[in-house]
Design a protein around this nucleic acid. Structure first.
Lengths: 367, 367
DNA sequence: TAATTTTGTTTAATCGTTTAAACACTAAAT
DNA sequence: ATTTAGTGTTTAAACGATTAAACAAAATTA
């Protein structure tokens, strides 16, 4: 399969390589309970009891000691697969997000990993690309591996996934997105309030024509952000125009669509004076384009985004953004899941408030 | 454990919640080979043969059909844990990186995930925080779960990890970092060349005092970047001063240390006229600080970084950077690993060349 | 017709654990 | 001197699959 030529002859190519056959290696055989049992001269049952600290009252101390000693000596590590088969528990949780390479989700993944690790769980992940069918396949693949539970950021139309999990009585917690009419665990933002305070902030700063760029999706999370955006205008007696609100389709040409949306907003007869982006990806595309047009922020246009855009620290106008409490979300989701795995089930639904971090992209104009 | 009060009484707090006891649910029992066997009236062996398309020549067509039909009807999904125990194969690979929330590693994770998925493997990951001990624990935890192989970005002093894996005859591929004296698979950058071309580019642009900010580490990867930096100067007859090259310790106070390093370089009697950062994290800290000082890029100072800093598109001077071929690295690492898992082992060592993406942060000065 | 081969299916062992139940002792209680 | 109650350990089944080997019946060959 790899037919690279020798490194020396490879000058000027864009890689160096070498292929070296491996010499024979002294392999350490995996040691099982049986190996220990044989060596000590007892049954595997006894070894199992000792190493799991069961029946402690009944086992002769010298034997127990000897077993532990030999286990140590042989560097015994229990085969979790065998253990799982018997105990029906894998100490593994499945994490399904849209895309693990999205900073929001990878940050979440790290937090979940750490929280899970505290209870000796490991994490298997999968990226579903905002696609409910792919998500379904992933969930099945992970269920086949008998994960003890799931943390899932469902895609649009992911209700069936949720129903599927529930039918199979497998614990799960939705994160970031959820379906308000389905009785499930979830941990998410208070999206309505977040949209609301973002726009209220704009209005208080004297901006009267806030635009919105969001995904064209039925996901409640984003619907709520939009509803917050609209209500903030209503409550502040702004005469909201539909043309201020743009929706783009998620996919390969999202970038282009965002650029078109920006054009639409800025070339209205009466252009918007500010834009709220409802996700980090939308903001990234939009900002780059706006920047490339030479539009000055915040003088020509104010900007607010969802999700931390720490990278924008370097931007001449660091962005005002709605900070998602990722740490808290990840921790809580994991805790709730592990509780559900261990104990009897209750439903926990958590909507955490966003924090509006005000920076230079929404400067006050004189009112 | 969760003693949140009722949502209505919770106005003004930073979260909303509710706890609803779950009603009883009609649970779908997991269906096993045995269930199918019973329903069809045959042995589990036969069911297994049919569903795995073995002994196809010998099995009565009607029976095979019936079995498949019932399997479908019951929505049978094989228990991978049981399968793994018997076959000694989990179709799982372990990914151990420094931090999954680092964009470089999460991008890599996504690529590995996709490549692995093509061959029906899933990925378990762990973050080792540049700590060889933590890495060792992680590797063990994943080995306990019988992963078929590893992709690992080892930490400093990770040689023992490598030896451990080799002793246990478990396939693995090092990624991003490696130990040149240990005969292992690796996929990494040609770090020497990358450092070299970065500095050569600076020199060609008329800069005569290139500084370096790197980690204080024995990791070969970073040593090589530094060696490239130094050699480029030697070959271009620049009289290199040791004071131009700063090393910072990885850890919680890296940010502060980077800021000190920047100070050191800029307040030399004869300050550097350009800085090469050897990682995205260093660059992020450094850039923010430099920016906050009001230093103008590239007029006062030119900048080159390792790793894609796409976010810097928004910066007034988008950064010149050494693009790591992440896609290729992830794909190749996965391919090499899966080859090693399936077939007899050869060692593949791949050093892929970086691409210098020249942007505004290294403007040409008149020479 | 008997021996052989082919066809279709089952039996049973196995992977590495866990764990209830059985067993063989010894010590205490009647 | 029995019965009863521990004490220390083993036996064996089970988890859910795979798979070599055994088996029975039908088809083919001699």
């Amino acid at each position: 399969m790899f037919d690279y030529v020798d490194i020396k002859s490879n000058v000027g190519k864009n890689f160096r390589y070498s292929q070296i056959p491996i010499g024979s290696i002294v392999m350490k055989k995996k040691v099982s309970l049986k190996d220990i049992a044989t060596k000590v001269g007892v049954s595997t049952a006894l070894v199992s009891y000792v190493l799991n600290n069961k029946k402690t009252g009944r086992i002769r101390k010298e034997v127990a000691l000897k077993i532990k000693e030999i286990a140590q000596e042989l560097n015994y590590r229990p085969n979790q697969i065998a253990k799982s088969l018997k105990t029906n528990k894998t100490f593994t949780i499945g994490l399904v997000v849209a895309d693990i390479s999205n900073p929001f989700f990878s940050a979440l993944a790290r937090i979940i990993e750490d929280e899970a690790d505290k209870k000796n769980y490991t994490v298997i992940f999968g990226s579903a690309d905002e696609n409910a069918v792919k998500s379904y396949k992933l969930i099945n693949a992970l269920m086949d591996r008998q994960v003890d539970g799931f943390i899932i950021a469902p895609a649009e139309n992911g209700e069936s996934n949720v129903a599927y999990l529930r039918d199979h009585d497998i614990p799960f917690v939705l994160i970031d997105r959820y379906f308000p009419n389905i009785e499930t665990n979830w941990v998410a933002l208070d999206n309505y309030e977040a949209g609301f305070i973002a726009v209220e902030h704009l209005i208080k700063n004297g901006l009267k024509r806030p635009g919105l760029i969001t995904y064209n999706t039925s996901l409640y999370t984003l619907q709520e952000r939009k509803r917050g955006y609209e209500d903030a205008m209503k409550e502040n007696e702004i005469d909201f125009k539909k043309s201020w609100s743009k929706e783009v389709v998620f996919g390969d040409d999202t970038k282009l669509l965002v650029e078109n949306a920006v054009d639409d907003l800025l070339f209205l007869p009466q252009p918007v004076d500010s834009i709220l982006f409802t996700s980090n990806i939308l903001a990234t595309y939009g900002l780059k384009y706006i920047h490339s047009m030479g539009v000055k922020i915040p003088d020509d246009l104010s900007i607010v985004t969802f999700d931390e855009m720490e990278a924008s620290d370097l931007f001449y106008a660091p962005l005002t953004y709605l900070r998602q409490p990722i740490q808290e979300m990840g921790e809580m989701a994991t805790k709730i899941l592990l509780e559900n795995i261990d104990k009897e089930k209750t439903i926990v639904q958590l909507n955490i408030k966003a924090e509006l971090v005000i920076r230079a992209s929404t400067k006050k104009t004189k009112i």
